[in-house]
Amino acid sequence: MKNLKIRGVWLVLMIAGFYLINFLVGAGVIDSFIENMIVTIGINIILAVGLNLIIGYAGQFSLGHAGFMAIGAYTTAIIVAKLPTTIGFYVSIFAGIAIAVLFALIIGIPTLRLRGDYLAIATMGAAEIIRVIINNLKITNGAAGMFNIPNLASWPTVYILVCVTTIIIVNFSRSRAGRALQAIRDDEIAAESVGITPLKWKLAAFVLGTATASVAGSLHAVYIQTITPGDFGIMSSVSLLIIVVMGGVGSYTGTVVAAVILGVLDTALQSLGALRMLIYAVILILIMMFKPSGLLGHYELSFTKIWDKISSRSNKINPKGEQS
């Protein structure tokens, strides 16, 4: 009963958010400039939440997230060039996921045995290899990239997919899978000693995280309508890592907050040129210095906890208060 109510609260929040944006767009408060910002933030949320699953829950330091985004973006661009319909777009999302998962397995099975920084550098290398391949293929139009991609998604599609991917990842993390991952992160040897196969669970998290990255890539392609291999370099992976760490490693709420703050900051400073990156760098260093565990640390917005707090308080007032 309690669970159903809490799910209801989240559902209402998501729908309310949708109608709020819808209303603001209709009222002209959100112009195309701000809409662009919102969509970018949404795409970054999808990417960073997936990356937080890999880094925060599985404890696997991946520096190659943008490579998987590239797979989704290019798959979609290629498919919708032939099939420029909404159906074509959805087909391309699933095709992108399939290819990304395949790559994640090829890359993950050997590299997820590596530890910490070695894994980071290996995943970074893997993403660079993906980028170089795209850079040299005919079908992806090489270094020039692909342009005039039909615009098949606007903010509502992005909004819905943000909700769907976040629900999937959060639910996955709050299950035996998430617990197994945390166990492996805390102490791999102990986890193995109780019959957990570390590689299997790490791979599951890696595959799921990269699949959502591919979805984000697909959205990026049809919204921005132009993609080049340069969009998916190391620096893109790094900026996703920044979102995760700034929000708090392991806190999905933090990831969303950091993605929004950085997205707004980025847009607000856009006219400043090189000074923008300088300010960005200073803010980044200062946040890390004063909040080393990220803005929200391990905090997670949970209506279950809020619920428990309220009900325990009402129980104190009325000891016989019924538990619903």
């Binding site: 330091f61 760490v245 300088l278 760098a281 200073v282 260093i285 890390m288 210095m289 080393p292």
Partner: peptide, 26 residues
């Protein structure tokens, strides 16, 4: 950041890198 999580120091290093690159550009 000596006692902070290692990933925090890494992000700071990235911040320093951005700072130097863009400071010099400016």
């Amino acid at each position: 950041l000596r006692k902070a999580p290692r990933i925090t120091a890494l992000i700071t290093a990235i911040g320093v890198s951005y700072f130097l690159e863009n400071g010099m550009s400016l």
